[in-house]
Design a protein around this nucleic acid. Sequence first.
DNA 1: TATGAATGAGGATTCATTCAT
DNA 2: CATGAATGAATCCTCATTCAT
Lengths: 200, 200, 200, 200
Amino acid sequence: MTARRRPRQERSQQTVDRIVAAGVRVLAQHGYQHASTNRIATEAGVSPGSIYQYFADKDAIVAEITRRLVDEFAAALTPALRRAASRPRGEATRVVIEAVLDALGQHADLLRAIVDRIPQAEQVATLQDVRTRLSDAIFNLFLIQGIDADEDALTRATWMIVEVSEHLTIRYVLDAPAIAREDFVADLERVIEGLTPTPR
Amino acid sequence: MTARRRPRQERSQQTVDRIVAAGVRVLAQHGYQHASTNRIATEAGVSPGSIYQYFADKDAIVAEITRRLVDEFAAALTPALRRAASRPRGEATRVVIEAVLDALGQHADLLRAIVDRIPQAEQVATLQDVRTRLSDAIFNLFLIQGIDADEDALTRATWMIVEVSEHLTIRYVLDAPAIAREDFVADLERVIEGLTPTPR
Amino acid sequence: MTARRRPRQERSQQTVDRIVAAGVRVLAQHGYQHASTNRIATEAGVSPGSIYQYFADKDAIVAEITRRLVDEFAAALTPALRRAASRPRGEATRVVIEAVLDALGQHADLLRAIVDRIPQAEQVATLQDVRTRLSDAIFNLFLIQGIDADEDALTRATWMIVEVSEHLTIRYVLDAPAIAREDFVADLERVIEGLTPTPR
Amino acid sequence: MTARRRPRQERSQQTVDRIVAAGVRVLAQHGYQHASTNRIATEAGVSPGSIYQYFADKDAIVAEITRRLVDEFAAALTPALRRAASRPRGEATRVVIEAVLDALGQHADLLRAIVDRIPQAEQVATLQDVRTRLSDAIFNLFLIQGIDADEDALTRATWMIVEVSEHLTIRYVLDAPAIAREDFVADLERVIEGLTPTPR
DNA sequence: TATGAATGAGGATTCATTCAT
DNA sequence: CATGAATGAATCCTCATTCAT
C-alpha cells in the first residue's frame, strides 16, 4: 500500500504533490540513502510531521514517485500505441520506439532518480508491474499477428525483446551517447525484428 | 587505491579475506544501505576496528569486492578469448558468450550483490573501467577484422553491443529466466551479428 | 554563526539553555576532550539528537558558551566603564579593574571551563574578538588622553597592558592566591600606570 | 611516575628519544586530542607496542615531553643566573630576562606544543613544579637582598612577578608581536622593578 | 625486546518517526 | 490538519591499549 489516505481536498493534493516533487529533486541530487525525509520536508516547504499524514514511511514516497513515473509514461505512450496498431509491423515498431524515447526524455530527471539512484533490488514493486504488463502486451501481439511458434520460443523472444528495449532506451536517454537518434532507432528496430519469431 | 596497508603476515591476509567475504554476504543479504560496517565486522568474526586497518572506509570494501569480481571474471575469460581468436567469426562470438556466462555464473552471488544491491550511480570506478576496456577491445576487433565502416557507425555498434551483451548476460545469469542456455546464446549471437557493421 | 536554527517556541529556548548549561558543567568537570556530546546530552536531560537541532557540531556548543561568557562579561562591565569615564586617570583604572574582577568572579565556573579546559589554540574566534576590541579600546584611550608617544610605543604599551591585565585578573579569580583584593588591585594599577606611555 | 623503565642501553635510549621527538612533532601539528599514539608511533618509525615498553600511557609521553622542555630550559638558564648573581639588581634582572627569551626561543616548537596545544588543567604536574621552584628562588632572592617587607607583601610580589614574567615572555616568544626585543625587555624589567617590594 | 595485528568501548553525528500543542 | 521539537537507535569511524608471535 502506498498512500495512507487518498486526499480529496485540493490543499491536501497540493501538499502531496509538493512532497513528491521535492522527493524527486532530493533523490536526484542526493541519492536514495541521503534523501532524508527531513530534507524532503524542508525542500517541500512542509513540516516533517506532515509527510506522515500522507505517506506511511519513506519508502512510500519513493513508491509514489515510481508510480507517477509509470503512469505518466503510460499516458504518454498510449496514443502512439493506438497509432501503431494500424501500421505495418516494421513501421509500428519504429513508431513505438520513438514514442518511448519521447516519453522517457520528458521525465529524464524522474527516471534518473529512480533508475540510477535506487538499487535494482529495491525498485521492484511498481516497476516489475510495468515490465509484466509490457511482456503481456508483446506476447499478445505475437499471438495476434499469427506468429505461433512454440510457446517457449515466444516466451524467450518476449523476454529478450523486453530486456533489450527497456535497457537500451533508458540508457540512450540517460547516458546520451554520441549516436544520432534515427540511427539508434533503426538499430533497435533491426534488433527487435531479428528477435521476433518467424511465423511457421 | 583501496587498501590502507598491504598486509604482510598471513593472518592479515586472512582477515582481509574474511572481511571481503562477509561484505559480499551482507551486501547480498541486506543490500548496500543496510550493510553496516558493524554488521560486516560481526559477520566476519572481527572487531569493527579491524576493518579500518585494511580499508579506508565502507566504500573501500565495496570497491575491493568489485575489484575482485572484475579480476576473477577477467581471469575466467582469458582462455576463452584466446581460444576464440582462432575460430571463424560466428563461432568465436559463441565461444565468448559461453565463457562470459560461465564466468558470471561462477560469481553469481558477488554479481548480484553489486549489480542489484548498489545504486548504479555509486557503482564504482572499477566497473566503468571494465566497460571501457570492453568497448576498446570490441572497437579494435572491428578494425582488425577489416570492418572499416565510418567511425560513427563503429562507435555506435560498439556501444550497442556492449550495452546489450552486458545487460542480457547479467540478467540471464541473475534472473534465470525459463530459457534454454543454447537458445539464449544463439539469440544473443544473432543480435550481435546483426549489430556488427558489414565491411564495405 | 553558531545556531542551526533560531528557535521560536519557548520549549526550544529552554532546551538550548539546558544544553549550554550542561555544556558548562561537563566542560568544567571533565575538560574539553572528555566533554562528549552524549555526556552533555545526558547531563542536559535531552536526547543526543536534540543537540544537533540547535548546534552544528560539538564545537558550536563551546562557541556558544564562549559567546555567552563574553556577552555577560561585557554587560557586567559596561556601567563601570561609564562611571570610570568621569574619574581622574588613576581612579578610573582602579574602578575598571574592580569591575573586571567582579564580572569575572560572577562567571568563574564558565571562565574556568573555557580558559583552563580548552587548549589555547582552540579557544575560539569569539575570544580573539574580545581581545581585539579590548586592544582597540585601550589604544583609543591613549589617543583621547592626548598621550601621543610614537605609534610603536603605543602599540607596545597596548599589547603589554592587555596581556598583563587579562592574565593577572583571570589567574587571580581562578587561582585565588592568598592576596588581599585591594593589594592586588593596587599592584595591577601600578603596573598599568608604569606601562602607560607618558605624554610628551 | 613517568617512564616505565629508565633504559640504559643505547638503542633503547634512541627509541625513547625518537618517540619523544615524534610526540613533539605530532602534538605541534595535530594538537593534543588528535595526537594519537598510533600516529606518534608511525612518525617515530616504531611499532605501537614499543611505545608501551617505555611509557605507561599516552599522558606519560606528554609528561616526558614537558619534563624535557623544563630540563633544557633550566640548563639553558643556569649560566645566566650565575652571571646575574654578580650584577647590580637592575642589570641582573635584564640578564635573566634575556636568557629566558633565548631559552624559550630555542624550544619554541616544544613550547607551543605544550602551552598552546594542551589544556592548562592538564599541564599541571611538571610545569607546576617549575613555577614552584621559580617562586621559591625569587622569594629567597628577596630575602637575600635584605628586602624584608612583611611576608604577605613578599608572597604577593612573588606571585605577581612569576605570573607576569612567565606569561609575557612566553607570549612574546610564541606570538611574536611587533615589538623590538630591547623595548620588551626594558618594559618587563620596569614592571618587575615596580613590583619588587622596597626595603624598609 | 620488538612487532603489528587485533581489539572494543566510545565518540560525533544522522534520520525515520512520534506526539504534544 | 499542521507543526516542529524531540527522540534514540543506529551509523561510521577512532584510538589507547593488549598480546601472540
